[in-house]
Computed example of a mutant assay.
Amino acid sequence: MKNRTKEIIRSLSEIFEGEPWYGDSVMRKLENVPYVIGYKTCIPESHSVAQIVGHLISWKLYAVEKLKGNDAYNIKIDSPDDWPKIEVHSQEEWEDLKRRLVAAQSKIYELLNEKKDDSYLEEKVSGKDYHFGYLLNGIIQHDIYHIGQIGLIESQLKKKEVDSGVFKA
């Protein structure tokens, strides 16, 4: 039986591209962010929306590699692998970044759909003190957390850019 896996896929999908109860999904939120603010920050020390998207990609690819059994793959917190340097200066670059995010998410769906049953969810992730069920629920929580950050950045920059024409009324 794959009941838990199906529920994880449903939750991943709802948060990523669906209609979660709390508001916008990841992709809906990103579709509302104009590329010209994708590389801006509210304060100099904070991350941009583009950097957050790069960070989401990093952790989705981490999940992919672990699901594929790649024992050697790891991400050190606060490293360039965790927070890659991402700059977006055109609509094309913004669209490419979002496509990379969708591709990483799609690969997770593909690997989960290949699972024969839910037993892998109780298996430990190689080199970690947690199992695959915990990792996948973490990816869901991670998306929700960063949707909030993106929304905050968007609302703050929207106030700054209101007269620039970036945001349409």
Rank of each mutant, 00 (worst) to 15 (best):
Y109V: 11
N70P: 13
W59Y: 14
P84M: 10
I52N: 05
Q141K: 04
S48P: 07
L157V: 00
L30P: 10
V162W: 03
S46L: 09
L121K: 01
G18M: 09
K68R: 15
D96E: 14
E17Y: 02
R28N: 09
G151P: 06
R28G: 07
F167Q: 04
E154M: 03
E92W: 01
V102W: 03
S155W: 11
S46K: 07
G69S: 13
L61E: 15
L61P: 00
V125N: 11
D163L: 07
Q91H: 06
Y62G: 01
D143E: 11
R4Y: 05
V162F: 08
G148T: 10
E122G: 00
L135H: 04
R10Y: 13
S90C: 01
N3A: 07
Y22A: 09
E7K: 04
K160H: 08
E19D: 13
I8A: 03
F167K: 12
K40Q: 14
D82Q: 05
G23L: 12
V53D: 08
D71Y: 12
E110T: 12
W59A: 00
L121S: 04
Y39P: 02
V53Q: 08
H146V: 08
R10V: 06
D81P: 03
K40H: 07
I37P: 04
G165H: 02
Y62D: 15
V33E: 09
A104N: 03
I77T: 14
V64L: 05
I9S: 02
Y145R: 02
K60I: 06
S48Q: 09
V33T: 11
S164L: 12
K85Y: 12
Q51H: 02
I15Y: 00
S155A: 13
M1S: 14
M1K: 09
H47Q: 14
D78F: 14
H47E: 11
H55C: 10
A63V: 14
F167T: 08
A169C: 06
K29T: 12
N70D: 15
G148F: 06
K68T: 15
E154K: 07
S119V: 12
Y120Q: 07
W21A: 02
E154L: 05
N137R: 02
S90P: 13
I75A: 00
V26I: 13
I86E: 08
K160A: 03
L61M: 15
P20K: 03
E7N: 03
I139D: 04
